[in-house]
């Protein structure tokens, strides 16, 4: 490591810290000025990979310190370190410090006291929610949680005194769970249970295939009672945002992969988004949205990977757009629509 290199690293770190301070104090009232600053920042990052590395390092440390602010502040109030620091301060400064401390304390109290007062319902009878083909529905529960059901889904909800329980019989839903530490939120789907540690995620159970994708917070997926406790499927998994778990009911394994939660739950906005998914999955999804069944008679074609966005409006239009993403042609059949490989399409 040469001296010049160390100086360069030091200078970059200083620039990165300057940028972060500027970005974190948006004193520019005008949106266009903020945009100009953001573009300048982006250009600075793009100018050199070392700028990116320096900024990431400063950002990581800053976020870590901000997240631990309360604990660090407390250590300063309690510990010998803090007393030493206090001794260095001038009397005038101490007053400012105390005012600042009081402000911070007030803010903390307000945040911890506000939520969920009055939401402690004692318990309720199970309620069932069902959506037909092509129907999507949002349900607001008494505890403040929301469930958005995709088409062709059925689930029941019991808000108990000690536990909130959902059974997903079939279909797919996005759960946005209100925090209530005293009453865990548990979803039973086939031979798995999903225990909620965090807040927002998508659960899908169709034809014995289960998948869970986490958008925000933490979610635990465990074998249900009575499920085979062998192999990989015998243990529980804790999923973080951007992680997806796939499992075929009764099978001995569980697949974990990275997934884009916005894509998985895009059906909420009337769109389906796929990145490298089999055509069979796309067709299964479409068959929940439209009355006329779509079939694929070619198992190789069914495994063709599809990437792209499908806006859900008219079935014929959707199939036409699907033909742009996969080498298919659609033929009318007595049952509905049959997808065939389009030999004319480029491979």
């Amino acid at each position: 490591m040469s001296e010049a290199w160390i100086r360069g690293e030091d200078a970059r770190r200083a620039s990165a810290a300057d940028w972060l301070v500027r970005l974190q104090s948006p004193d520019l009232a005008d949106l266009d000025e903020q945009v100009a600053e953001a573009v300048a920042f982006d250009n600075w990052l793009a100018a050199h990979p070392a700028n990116v590395a320096a900024y990431d390092a400063v950002l990581a440390v800053t976020l870590e310190l901000q997240n631990a602010a309360a604990a660090i502040g407390k250590a300063f109030e309690d510990g010998p370190v803090a007393r030493a620091a206090l001794a260095r301060r001038s009397p005038a400064a101490t007053r400012g410090w105390l005012i600042a401390g009081a402000l911070a304390a007030a803010a903390t109290v307000a945040l911890t006291v506000t939520p969920f007062a009055g939401l402690q319902t004692a318990g309720s009878a199970p309620k069932s929610y069902v959506t037909a083909k092509g129907e999507r529905r949002a349900v607001k529960l008494a505890d403040g949680s929301t469930i958005e059901l995709n088409a062709g889904s059925a689930l029941s909800v019991t808000l108990g005194a000690h536990e909130r329980h959902v059974t997903l019989a079939e279909g797919e839903a996005v759960f946005d769970v209100a925090a209530d530490k005293a009453r865990p939120f548990i979803i039973a789907a086939g031979d798995r249970t999903v225990r909620v540690v965090g807040t927002r995620f998508d659960v899908r159970r169709r034809a014995g295939e289960l998948s869970v994708t986490v958008e925000r917070g933490l979610v635990e997926v465990n074998p249900a009672e009575g499920a085979p406790h062998s192999g990989m499927a015998g243990r529980g998994f804790r999923l973080r945002p951007g992680q997806r778990l796939d499992h075929r009911e009764g099978a001995g394994e569980v697949q974990l992969s990275a997934a884009d939660p916005a894509q998985v739950s895009s059906w909420r906005a009337g769109r389906l988004i796929y990145r490298d998914r089999p055509l069979s999955e796309v067709v299964a999804d479409l068959n929940q949205q439209f009355a006329k069944p779509i079939a694929i008679d070619d198992p190789v074609l069914a495994q063709t990977r599809v990437s792209g966005v499908l806006v859900l409006d008219d079935q014929d239009a959707v199939i036409r757009r699907l033909a742009l993403l996969a080498p298919i042609k659609a033929l009318p059949s007595p049952q509905g629509v049959l997808l065939r490989r389009d030999e004319a399409a480029k491979p």
Partner: peptide
């Protein structure tokens, strides 16, 4: 509040 009650964040 949820973060404060249920979890903490370290380094994001």
């Amino acid at each position: 509040a949820w973060r404060q009650v249920e979890r903490t964040e370290v380094g994001g």
